[in-house]
Nucleic acid binder design. Structure first.
Ligand SMILES: [Mn+2]
Ligand SMILES: [Mn+2]
Ligand SMILES: [Zn+2]
Ligand SMILES: [Zn+2]
Lengths: 138, 138
DNA sequence: GCTTGACTTGGACAATGTCCAGCATGGGGC
DNA sequence: GCCCCATGCTGGACATTGTCCAAGTCAAGC
């Protein structure tokens, strides 16, 4: 993640304790936290950080293309630091667990012109749903 | 849509003015209204209908499998009366317009076992994004 | 027509997210 | 190293979307 901090500094981002903490919280694989989850973990490291700052920082990271917004459920948006390797998501319908997945094939080529209604289609997002091993056991 | 009302009556649904109006509002193709949009249109036909009833009725229609919930944007859930023909969605990134689409191929078979993490995968949802002809003109 | 249980209502409450005025501070210029 | 001020942060008010409940209303079976 210091990669990330370096890249951001290079882009003229002013480095503050708050932004550093948010970036730290977002490190790792299969990480898809809500804004309030990010805030809770940030508070553990920097007690006085505000909700507004977390929202602002996440929004900036999204604008910079360093973090993706995903809405797998109908609840809060989730923030995904895995922005540099295209992927899709596999979501547990019961507990909400999310894994990054890399399907074969290109769903883009599965949409014939006759089904494009004149749109310029630029992106496709695939969400698989099912039951995770943990929930299946219970 | 009287099909729908018949089916519901057959299932023991008590028929009320409110429910009839909600069902009427949901008629048609490529219809993907938010709950508050449904409420606004329902109020035009039945001024005293409450928000709570619209939410309740939509929730029941979803439980009965007559209407689908879709969350194409990160805002409000949308309600889709096209529940009896499986389909995916094409969304305008600018104005939010939504079309039903029927891609060829089966994305389910594009997810190898090694990418399933032990999940029992039961469903896949594909969202295409782009710019609609209207927004492209502007 | 009654009766009754299911339905509706309005408003309180919760969760998520946005906005703003005023204070704090990172970091470039000296 | 120190100052300055544009940029960032804060707490709280406000907005949007959705849930819940007690009390009143009504559809439909008798
Ligand atoms: Mn991801
Ligand atoms: Mn649809
Ligand atoms: Zn699970
Ligand atoms: Zn458009």
């Amino acid at each position: 993640m210091s990669d990330l901090l370096e890249r951001l500094r290079g882009r003229g981002w002013r480095m503050t304790a708050q932004r550093r903490v948010v970036a730290e919280v977002l490190a790792g694989d299969h990480v898809h936290l809500t804004a309030d989850e990010v805030h809770a973990r940030a508070v553990a490291k920097l007690p006085e950080i505000s909700r507004a700052t977390v929202y602002n920082t996440l929004g900036e990271l999204v604008s910079l293309g360093e973090v993706l917004e995903v809405s797998t459920d109908k609840r809060a948006k989730r923030y995904d630091p895995n922005a540099h390797r295209p992927h899709h998501h596999l979501v547990c319908a019961q507990c909400g667990a999310i894994r990054d997945v890399h399907p074969t094939g290109n769903p883009m080529s599965d949409l014939p012109d006759s089904e494009r209604f004149g749109f310029t289609v630029s992106d496709v997002e695939v969400t698989y749903r099912g039951i995770c091993p943990n929930c299946a056991k219970a």
